[in-house]
């Protein structure tokens, strides 16, 4: 089983004219294959800094990231191999695909770069991946991103992330830019893939409702510190930390809203 360990990571940014800003403060957690960890917190809480450190776009000021007990290599082949095992799905499917290139190209590139399959099998693998994310390969493979809907584009981004057969997936708000009626479809697809491929998923979001339904565990981040972590239902339904309670109270919750309204009117609905 693959385990990624985030070990007492602190990240300090130097802000021009404003001294130092501690984006992460001694953050520790583990990400296991076959499990989904939801990471919630408001803007500026440090969620994206965690994603950047995981993908080695930033280096921590102190602390270590370990994959199966090994520290993450800084460069060269070893770093490439690390990145092959951990892939990202970004928030904006309109910006994360190159408008100049076909869908085929987007998925072919990681297959070729990471030499996942022999050259003569690349086409078949591209098609397999597209079918895997429930797209009709024949109808989308030679199209460009602008010809697809937001949901289809996000499926392409997921297929691209899966191409190098990663063990871990970091999904940063993967459905927040999509229309509501297709969000559940994409989340269910991610859940299926996660289960079938035994992926470890880090689901970064500020939407507590989807975090609860999509994650095994939830970790709440406030100003760079982990304030609460536990099974998804417990953290959301019975939050212990004041900040988690505040987040929970601020999230739209029609069920509670109308129950309260009915009580205030002195009668049951």
């Amino acid at each position: 089983m693959t385990v990624l360990e985030f070990d007492r990571i602190t990240k300090i940014y130097n802000v021009r004219g404003a001294g130092q800003m501690k984006a992460l403060d001694e953050v520790s957690f583990t990400l296991e294959s076959g499990r989904t960890l939801g990471l919630v917190g408001q803007s500026g809480s440090g969620k994206s800094t965690i994603a950047k450190i995981l993908t080695q776009l930033e280096t921590p000021t102190t602390g270590r990231v370990l994959l199966d007990g090994e520290p993450i290599p800084r460069h060269g082949k070893a770093l490439r191999s690390y990145r092959q095992q951990l892939r990202m799905v970004f928030q904006d499917p309109f910006a994360s695909l190159n408008p100049y290139h076909s869908i085929r190209y987007h998925i072919e590139r990681p297959l070729q770069l990471d030499r996942v399959v022999p050259a003569d099998q690349v086409d078949a693998e591209v098609r397999r991946l597209l079918e895997r994310v429930r797209l009709d390969a024949d109808s989308v493979i030679d199209r460009r991103p602008h010809e697809l809907s937001g949901g289809q584009r996000q499926r392409v981004a997921i297929a691209r992330a899966l191409a190098s057969r990663p063990k871990l997936l970091v999904a940063d708000e993967p459905v927040s830019m999509l229309d509501v009626s297709i969000r559940l479809g994409v989340l269910n697809l991610l859940a299926d893939l996660q289960r079938e491929e035994g992926l470890g998923v880090l689901y970064i979001t500020h939407d507590l409702a989807t975090a609860r339904h999509f994650s095994d565990e939830i970790m709440v981040l406030n100003q760079g510190r982990v304030v609460e972590r536990g099974p998804a239902d417990e953290v959301i339904l019975n939050p212990q930390d004041p900040y988690t309670r505040e987040l929970r109270a601020a999230s739209p919750d029609p069920e509670k809203h109308f129950a309260t309204a009915a009580r205030d009117q002195g009668g049951a609905r």
Binding site: L184, N188, D192, A209, H213, D233, L237, K256
Partner: peptide, 15 residues
Amino acid sequence: SSFPRLTGERGVVVR
């Protein structure tokens, strides 16, 4: 029904 409920039943995301 497209919105997972914050406090409602589980099961909208099949896991």
